[in-house]
Design a protein around this nucleic acid. Sequence first.
DNA 1: GAGCACTGC
Length: 716
Amino acid sequence: MDRQQKRARLDLGTNVAATSAAHGPLLAPGFSDLIQPGCNPFNGKPYSRRYHDILRGRKELPVYGFLERLLDAVKNNQTVVVEGETGSGKTTQIPQFLVKDYARRGSKCVACTQPRRVAAMSIAQRVADEMDVQLGEEVGYSIRFEDTTGPNTLLKFMTDGMLLREAMSDPFLERMSVIVLDEAHERTLSTDVLMGLLKELLQQRKDLKCVVMSATLDAEKFQTYFEGAPLLRVPGRTFPVEIFYTPEPERDYVEAAVRTAAQIHACESAGDILVFLTGEIEIEDVCQRLRNEAQKCGPERGELVVYPLYSSLPPRQQKRIFDKAPGPRVAGGMPGRKVVVSTNIAETSLTIDGIVYVVDPGFSKQKVYNPRIRVESLLVSPISRASAKQRAGRAGRTRPGKCFRLYTEASFKSELQEQTYPEILRSKMSNVVLTLKKLGIDDLVHFDFMDPPAPETLMRALELLNYLGALDDDGALTDLGRQMAELPLDPQLAKLLLASPEYKCSNEALSVVACMSVPQIFQRPRQKQREADDAKNQFAHRDGDHPTLLNAYHAYKHHHSDPAWCSENFLSSRSLASADSVRQQLQRIMERLNIPLVSTPFDDPDYYVNLRKCILAGNFLQVAHLERGGSYLTVKDNQVVALHPSTVLDSKPPWVCYEEFVLTSRNFVRTCTAVECRWLCEIAPHYYDLQNFPKGEAKVALERCYRQIMAERAKE
DNA sequence: GAGCACTGC
């Protein structure tokens, strides 16, 4: 920390105590003169009774006494870092407080980003209520598929990804006077890119202000990154949580989790339990075991209701976690309690009130990226100390709680890393690179990322974009690349769509791409796997999973998107409905880009062939060749893979083009479609170039194919 | 012949 920063922090630090004691005036000086007394300055209407009710509660928030101080800091600095824990009220109070000085109707607004859609929506509603205005007028939100903002908007809540997209059409963010980045400590890919972008933009737009809000722990890292930014610390308001560690390391964390939850139910006083685990299968297993354990308790302990929680659970079952725990079973007995067994979804995305006990085995599934073989995969890994603290905090939202960590205190202190690696260090960069190029950032190597991705990861992204034709050999964005960046898709899928008119299948490509951009549309409940497989076979196309997706989507439309029909046929109507929204959005963008929307007639023998060629036009880097031994080798990377058992392909075609590489018990390729060697030579000769092709059976087959093509051409 | 942590555009 340099001297200037240190001084800035001290200045704030000394004054903070004084202002927190005395609640300063809410309106900025001079502002209240402009309006009728008792009227809402934002819309000139008299305040409702509810406004005053809510205001009383707002004045109790820890952040309330800091607001004037914050305004001072923002006035005197371009960037301010705010550190505030859960319950401080920073998310709702700070953005609306800035509106008074920094937003002007019809010209400038305050924007506040959130990592999640639900948060953007619900916070916007809450703040609109607090400001006593109609949601969609002075306060609105903007998320994918929904924009409630308009010409009167003074305060706009949006997802971080949405702001990034807006920056593409408005690189100087000219409509905005203050950008508030909330939940910056989560370090989502979009927030990290935005921070780098804002750091540059702040140099160019001296009138732009930026407030970076983070939970405790690493606010100083943000302060260092935004050189000279003052740090404002706001206390939180939560209840104490007592932490317990195991004296010895646990060999089997699943077993330990069951035992601990059962013990809490048997011995501890009333209050609900939250157990963190890593995935669906583990969770369903533990739920079953807990139901069995609960039977062993006497009736005086009350009933134990067990709920699983993970994102692919149908919404109706997800909502059950909010049901109240049952009362006592016998007069004078203990009330019942609920135990929620959850993935990380309960760590940040979903808050369950009434949790008093947390069981934390210390693991979660985390994305990792291996640039060498270009594979993103999920790995069960130890969580960070920050994550452990967040989990424990879930026990103290309504009253004092207890957290049982299923690891030793020594390993908490010495083995867990302080922070989870930010997503940008664990992801492929192809999409980020395309976005940055589109935003006019040419020199990616010197772009000021808070945590720069590995050079090899960036190289892989540049290479991929070059092969796809999005970047030329000098790394400059091509016309195709500019169009690809407009589509909210991975570059391969964007390329596939843009190539679709060439293969006379734009409408079909749109449907397939939409289905691939949503969670799995085929459902396979554990109890009914056979029935589900039979249902899927109705849609199966012998040449692969992509045509099968198209068939299922068509059947869905043919049955008028009927949810009952979906569930009879083991299709997720939730996924298909969102595929429909995605498809509409993509179609609108294609129309705007003047990409012709064409189809091959369904009775044409080339209907599916054209689609398969088009799939290959986007996915030609994801191809595997069947080797003599019977296993597949991925092209160029030479990874041994097997077709994922979910594939509809029942024979093993010599060449398959796949959507993703999944690393679980073995290496699998998922969503596979048979392609022909010839197509590789015709569609992607620059990639299937014999000069740069590793020796092996695939190369031999390609050589044979090229010779054949030459011979045919000679004959013509 | 087997899983898919969580977001977001």
